[in-house]
Structures are given as structure tokens and as C-alpha cells.
Simulated assay, not measured.
Amino acid sequence: MKLAETNACTICHRDLRDDEIGRFACPFCVDLVDQRLRALAGPEGLYARLSAQLAPGAGNGGPAVSGSRTAPVPVRLEVLTLMTVGGPVLGPLETWVRDWETQGRADMCEAGTLQQRVDHAVGTLRFNLAWAAANHPAVDEFAREVHLMHRACERQITGERPARIVPVACPCGTVLRITLDTAGAQCVGCEARYGHAELMELPLAERRIAA
């Protein structure tokens, strides 16, 4: 077991309790990741529900309308991309399964339909989540990727517009571009790591006015 170098959760950056010292993630963050993984899988999960959003006009509250004389795209490409083998859902899920497989904690399975592969990957990752929280130093990266795929699927299903990007300033002067959904970020200037709450407390970056 590799102990964390700090006494704070690497996902939310809050201090760990005495009985949690040595872990990479606190129980609250582990539960949140588990909830998001669970929401992706199954016949009623977010991934399965994407198929109902493939038709142009689905999910945006109105019929498909084209102002050109060319035939419209038969499917919504952004939704189709989410459903592909190498897309931003199945791709990252199976990448993490492969990573955990090298550590003897998972079994990779690429058989069956895409839905079955998503379900298998989610089940495998959820089963080993407690182990990852205590032993995997990149569990914060895993949590961010799960958050991103969950939000991407959810937006397509609800028709929600992408969150507005807001520039905030790190104390070192580097501008970080975040949204209200950003789970965490690392400054490329000073390499400081921020959890969601800490990002929300950073001041807005001043706009530069062109001369």
C-alpha cells in the first residue's frame, strides 16, 4: 500500500480525519464517484439513454430544422461520439480498467455490445473503488474523468447548454478557465492543485483591454 504524501483528500483537498490518514480520497468523494459511475450503467442509465437523443432535434426542445438545401445529418454527431468505442465514455472507462488490471485489481473484457462493455467496466471500477481510494495516487484524475463523462451524458439527455467558462486567477498570476461544474484543476504555472470549493474562491481574472 502506497500512503498519500499529504493528509488531505487529493480530489476535494479537504483535510482527512485521523482514521482516514494515508488515503488518497475521502469517503465523501468516493461516494460521489460511485454515484456517478452507477448513474452511467444499466438499461436505464445515462449511457443507455443516449440512444434516444441520436435523432436531430432530440433533447433540444424542438424539431429538427435545416436552413440549407443539403440533407441534414441523420444523427447528432456529438451524441454518437459519446456512444463510440473510443469515445469519452467507454474509452476512459476501459483505460482505467486496463490500468487497474496491471495491478491485479481488475479483469478487462471487450466482449459483447457497447452497453455490456460499459456495464462491465463500471461494475469492475465500482468494485475496486475503495482499494483505489486507499492505494492509487491518480484516483483524483479518475474522479475528474468520471465527472466529465457523467456531465457530458447528462447534458445531451437534458438538453442543458454547456456551462459558461469563467477565467479565475491563481495567486501566481496564471489564469485558469473553469466552469461551475469543474471538479478540480491544477495550475500550469505553479502546479498548485485546487478542489472545486477552492476554485470557486479564486478571484476573477482581470480582462485585458487591447490597446
Results as ranks from 00 to 15, higher is better:
P92Y: 01
D107G: 05
D18P: 01
T70R: 11
A48I: 00
H13I: 07
R193L: 11
A130F: 11
G87N: 12
I11C: 10
L82Q: 04
L16W: 02
E110L: 14
H120M: 05
L204Y: 00
L180K: 12
R117S: 02
G112I: 05
V73R: 09
T179E: 10
E191T: 11
Y47N: 05
G57S: 07
T6A: 11
I209A: 07
E44W: 08
G159W: 05
D31E: 11
H13R: 15
Y194D: 04
I21R: 15
L125S: 11
E206S: 08
G42K: 13
E78S: 14
L50M: 06
Q115C: 04
A143C: 08
D140V: 01
T124P: 12
Q53H: 01
V65T: 06
R49Y: 01
I178P: 01
V175K: 10
V122F: 05
V30T: 15
T113D: 05
R164L: 13
E206Q: 10
P162A: 02
A132Q: 13
E191P: 00
T158K: 05
S51L: 09
E198K: 06
G45M: 04
T174C: 06
P137Y: 06
A39M: 03
R17V: 06
G159P: 00
G173Y: 02
L176R: 13
R23D: 11
L114Q: 10
T182F: 01
R161G: 04
I21T: 10
R69G: 11
C187Q: 10
P137Q: 07
Q35A: 15
I165Y: 01
V97L: 10
Q35I: 14
R49V: 01
A64H: 13
T102M: 13
V118C: 05
H147M: 08
